[in-house]
């Protein structure tokens, strides 16, 4: 593996972290969906590059799933749902953009501090990839926490899953069963969420999760 190969792998993984930050501060629904598509595309390229480097053809399937399913199918479907529900105006966040971004940076620093010394033995290539993957997972978590809107939370969850796929491909020779299962779980998750969104719409005329919080289940 030449230094250039490693650099390209890191460039792609690093771009994913960057796109995660873009997701974090996006406050318009369509822009959020478009950027999620970009996130999935970068993931697909990153996985394909890993497949090329590790000479593991099965990883190309994972890349293809990421490209077609997460990069095209889900954003288009969510786009339609958003249009049909008429919720494209804006997304409310619990915390304003500034503190969220600062917190996101702290999380990236944390994952680097945690991962790099731990994976000393695993080699430079794997360890930096894992540090990026953990950053994406943590940023996805942060996004889920800061969004009030159901669609925003779903996108946060899927960006988190993208981070997991990156970690799984970075771990050399990890059996295919896991990658397929991750893609599969996203599929099921998406179906369920779709049903939920429509049911929520039926009940509350909004997909704002705050409307759900009204029904605490324990009102006196």
């Amino acid at each position: 593996m030449t230094p250039l190969d490693t650099d390209i792998a890191h460039l792609l993984a690093g771009s994913m972290v960057l796109v995660s930050f873009l997701l974090l501060y996006q406050d318009r629904m369509f822009a959020l969906l478009n950027i999620f598509a970009v996130h999935a595309w970068v993931l697909a390229f990153s996985v394909a590059w890993q497949a090329h480097l590790q000479q593991a053809p099965h990883l190309f399937i994972t890349a293809l799933i990421a490209l077609v399913f997460k990069g095209v199918f889900i954003p288009v479907a969510l786009h339609r749902i958003v249009v049909r529900l008429g919720i494209h105006r804006s997304i409310e966040s619990v915390v304003s953009v500034g503190p969220t971004m600062l917190f996101g940076m702290a999380l990236v620093a944390l994952s680097i501090v945690v991962m790099l010394p731990v994976t000393e033995a695993a080699g430079a290539f794997v360890r930096e990839d894992l540090a990026f993957a953990l950053s994406i997972v943590l940023l996805g978590l942060l996004m889920m926490v800061t969004r009030r809107n159901a669609v925003g939370q779903v996108i946060g969850f899927m960006s988190l899953e993208n981070g997991l796929v990156l970690a799984a491909t970075g771990a050399r020779g990890m059996p295919l069963v896991v990658e397929i299962s991750v893609a599969f779980s996203v599929l099921i998750a998406f179906i369920i969420i779709g049903i939920f969104l429509f049911r929520i719409r039926e009940r509350f005329d909004s997909v704002d999760v705050r409307a759900l919080d009204m029904s605490r289940g324990e009102s006196p």
Binding site: F157, L160, E161, V182, F196, I200, V209, M214, S215, G217
Partner: peptide, 22 residues
């Protein structure tokens, strides 16, 4: 509405847990 909130909360927290486990 209560059942939907419960299922949504379960889904979100359960998925985050399951993601960390992966």
């Amino acid at each position: 509405s209560a059942a939907l909130e419960a299922a949504w909360k379960y889904f979100i927290l359960g998925s985050v847990g399951i993601a960390l486990a992966l």
